[in-house]
Design a protein around this nucleic acid. Structure first.
Length: 830
RNA sequence: GCCGGAGUGGCGGAAUGGCAGACGCAUUCGACUCAAAAUCGAACGGGAAACCGUGUGGGUUCGACUCCCAUCUCCGGCACCA
């Protein structure tokens, strides 16, 4: 069934459609959906063959975590892309639409602790169940390509990547301040700290000094800022750009009693306005710079600052800080600038210290005001007054009170010049800094990829040789959420021999961040069973990048940034030629509870898709989810709204299998063909632009016409047979089960999902006679029916002949006449 | 504060400079029915009308929901990043 010739078009030589006799039974989705799902499976109808004909199209929706249940949000995110993938397949594209499970992670472990079972069993039972749910959704997922990231055959390659990156210096271990989630008992990456809270569980994050493994994403900071070949929503782009946070400026050296201290600034043009220095509390020079008299007060401040969580630090708007007792020498004036310690300076950014320019920086101004420090104006707005000391002035202007720099424009305009001069003087250099930090990937948890490192007392940290991969997770482990990896309690696991000397050694007992798993799974889908590497390069080269990647906005920075990084690393490892994993990214909106709030069990506003399928059938649920809102927007669930799609499918059913009550109608063959072909054209365009709600609207509208046509003599013409056939094909992507049932019952032998999308008859899709509005002076005054090809003169004459128009035109001087064929006539009078 | 997005009937929304409110939901009326459901038919922005209407005020244009400027509100993200 998957051979290319099974996609042979049927439109040019259609099989005759048998218009069936009225059936006794009404539309009953339950009688047909399970039947077809089983049949499609048995026929391998959706199996993907990379070698099949047709231009490849890779459509991917972010794979789910196997939490146990597909919720309505999953349906929302998968159904519309499924319909679109089906549409593209019918258009002759060779469509890869795979699915798998992002199956490592904390919930499995937490469930295991709570219910005293094995995370592996819990996870794989959930995967089984959820795969069944996916099937009941009626997707065209090729399940033969399914995998879970907790499969050893998958995570083995996480380990392989790790060791390769280790050898190239892209993975390193470092001791330093890290984010610690006290509830999940593990460290977190910066990206997993949202507003000072753990992205997963919401607990306030603490800081700890620990030795951990990092991936060098900062090496790619500049490249990650270049979205060149990738089409992402503006907000995602903005969020990533901000996250990477490139700042161009200079670093400037100040002499201090503890040696040179270098600060980073984006405003070197304000150097003469620097009146004090500030170090972050964690800055290594704090101790050396603290004078004996200040010892006690500094110690107390560090203790206070150190005990605060990030959230507490951010919440206090009051500036706090203490004087160290030491002074720095200003590199130009040789003035002695007091050195302070304050927690508004972050150790993790720049050099962890700043030159404070209170006149031109709001934060420094506040601090200077609070502690009575000098404020020196060095930038003045062009033609402006001296500053009023009420607030900092951070805008553009002219440099003043700065010796040789006086009169230069301040701000961007002169920064390069200023830096060049300071560089010549020997105390400053141009420098760019990033907000982005390296990716901390160690986790002190069990259910993840073991870090493939062996510690030898002699040879230090050594990567596990490729021949010994994968380092398997032990089957059985005792959980003691103690802040140490559960693997620490497994002596057998830890025992290893050094790859260099063969001596007794120990394994690393941490596991990898699960975002490692999802950083490259899109490549794996191209050759899911390959065991000669993470993926088969030839296949991946042909199928990657993803043509359309869809998923939630919550991954704007996390997963999407990591997978962009990983793709560049893979390229540099020679595993692929592409630099970006996806061509187009789109985010679906969120379906909220009926109360307009986010769905949650505690709120009791959860809509269960399984219940809906039991009540209405999958096709109705698919339709309603497509129809409920613009797909990229989403919105609250409206219980009664589903009645529309439910009624619609009953009418569709009646169109083919039942008589339709109601008065006799007159629909011309011409009008019928116009309705069919103009809808066909619109639906095609709407699939391209992901406008799923208007596709449903167009199909409903066409149904209204077809219902009328069925009660008119046109129902005995070839146009009627054509209409039923094309309509059936148009239904196939959106509502695959009912479409298949109708297709089979109208005398076709092969699946509707193996048919070609019908061709638009362009002539039929246009009306010969069009009704267009007539404006007088831009106000609509009437409408006229004219030929589509009418000339301007004909159109204007027809418009003037209309009494509603004539009333406003007669006796007035015509200034201008506008005729846009098919759109509008506008007569402008004076 | 900075960044991004959005404001259209009772509700979800449609309209890619050209008849604002498509398609639905809800509601109301009618037909069918003993009755109800289902189904079918109709009404459904405001106004008696002239007309007025896409958050508000300007502008560009023959013509603006759509483009430009300003402004308000809401949603989302970041938040002492020097």
């Amino acid at each position: 069934m998957t051979s290319p010739d099974s996609h042979a078009p049927t439109i040019d030589s259609p099989e005759p459609i048998n218009i069936p006799e009225p059936r006794a039974e009404r539309y009953n989705p339950h009688a047909i959906e399970a039947k077809w799902q089983a049949q499609w499976d048995a026929d391998h109808l959706y199996r993907f063959d990379p070698a099949a004909s047709g231009e490849k199209y890779y459509a991917l929706t972010m794979f789910p975590y196997p939490s146990g249940n597909l919720h309505i949000g999953h349906w929302y995110s998968y159904c519309a892309p499924d319909a679109r993938a089906r549409y593209l397949r019918m258009n002759g594209r060779n469509v890869l639409f795979p699915m798998g499970f992002d199956s490592f992670g904390l919930p499995a472990e937490n469930a295991a602790i709570k219910n005293n079972l094995n995370p592996r069993e819990w996870t794989y039972a959930n995967i089984d169940y959820m795969t069944g749910q996916f099937r009941r959704m009626g997707t065209m997922i090729d399940w033969s390509r399914q995998f879970a990231t907790s499969d050893p055959a998958y995570y083995r390659w996480n380990q392989w990547f790790f060791t390769e990156m280790f050898r190239r210096g892209l993975v390193y271990k470092k001791e330093g301040l890290v984010n610690w989630c006290p509830r999940d008992q593990t460290v977190l990456a910066n990206e997993q700290v949202v507003g000072g809270h753990c992205e997963r569980c919401g607990a306030p994050v603490e800081r700890r000094n620990l030795s951990q493994w990092y991936m060098k994403i900062t090496d790619y900071a500049d490249e990650l800022l270049d979205f060149g070949s990738t089409d992402m929503p503006e907000r995602v782009r903005a969020m990533q750009t901000h996250w990477i946070g490139k700042s161009v400026g200079a670093e400037i050296d100040f002499a201090t009693p503890a040696g040179l201290e270098t600060v980073f600034t984006t405003r070197p043009d304000t150097l003469l306005g620097a009146t004090f220095l500030v170090l972050a509390p964690e800055h290594p020079k704090v101790a050396a710079l603290t004078t004996p008299e200040q010892q006690e007060i500094v110690r107390a401040y560090l203790e206070l600052a150190g005990g605060k969580t990030d959230v507490e630090r951010q919440q206090s708007s009051e500036k706090t800080g203490v004087f160290t007792g030491s002074y720095a020498t200003h590199p130009i004036t040789n003035d002695q600038l007091p050195i302070w310690v304050a927690d508004y300076v972050l150790v993790s950014y720049g050099t962890g210290s700043i030159m404070a320019v209170p006149a031109h920086d709001e934060r420094d101004f506040e601090f200077a005001r609070a502690f009575g420090l000098n404020i020196a104006e060095v930038i003045r707005p062009a033609g402006g007054e001296p500053m009023d000391m009420q607030s900092a002035y951070s805008g553009e202007g002219l440099i003043v009170n700065s010796g040789e720099f006086d009169g230069m424009p301040g701000g961007k305009a002169s920064i390069a010049k200023v830096i060049a001069r300071m560089e010549a003087l020997g105390f400053a250099r141009a420098r760019t800094t990033f907000r982005l930090r390296d990716w901390l990937i160690s986790r002190q948890r069990f259910w993840g990829t073991p870090i493939p490192i062996i510690y030898c007392p002699e040879h230090g940290a050594q990567p596990v040789p490729e021949s010994e991969l994968p380092v398997l997770l032990p089957a059985d482990v005792k959980f003691a959420p103690s802040g140490q990896s559960p693997l620490k309690g497994d002596a057998e696991f830890q025992k290893a021999t050094c790859p260099v000397c063969g001596g007794a050694a120990e394994r690393d007992t941490d596991t990898m961040d699960t975002f490692v798993d999802s950083s490259w799974y899109m490549f794996r889908f191209t050759s899911p069973d390959f065991d000669g590497g993470p993926w088969d390069r030839h296949v991946a080269d042909a199928l990657m990048p993803i043509d359309l990647y869809t998923g939630g906005i919550e991954h704007a920075i996390l997963h999407l940034l990591y997978s962009r990084f990983w793709t560049k690393v893979a390229r540099d490892l020679g595993l692929s030629t592409i630099s970006e994993p996806f061509k187009v990214l789109r985010n679906q909106g969120i379906i909220l509870g009926p109360d307009g709030e986010k769905m949650s069990k505690s709120r009791g506003n959860v809509i269960d898709p399984d219940d809906l399928v039991r009540e209405y059938g999958a096709d109705t649920v698919r339709t309603y989810l497509a129809f409920i809102a613009p797909w990229e927007v989403g919105g609250p669930w409206d219980k009664s709204g589903i009645n529309g799609p439910a009624k619609w499918l009953s009418r569709v059913w009646a169109l083919y299998f039942d008589s339709i009550r109601g008065p006799a109608e007159t629909v011309s063959e011409h009008d019928l063909r116009y309705a069919v072909h103009s809808t066909l054209k619109k639906v095609g365009g709407d699939f391209e632009r992901l406008s799923f709600n208007t596709i449903v609207a167009a199909l409903m509208e066409l149904t209204n016409t077809l219902v009328k046509a069925k009660r008119s003599p046109v129902a005995h013409t070839p146009a009627w047979a054509e209409a039923l056939e094309i309509f059936n094909l148009m239904l196939a992507p959106l509502v695959p089960h009912i479409a298949e049932e109708i297709w089979t019952e109208t005398g076709h032998s092969r699946s509707v999902h193996l048919q070609h999308w019908p061709a638009v008859d362009e002539a039929a899709a246009e009306r010969d006679t069009v009704t267009i509005g007539v404006q007088v002076g831009g106000k609509v005054r009437g409408e006229v029916q004219i030929s589509r090809t009418a000339t301007q003169t004909e159109a204007i004459d027809a418009a003037r002949a209309n009494p509603d128009v004539a009333r406003y035109v007669e006796g007035k001087e015509t200034v201008k006449e506008v005729y846009v064929p098919g759109r509008i006539i506008n007569i402008v009078v004076r």
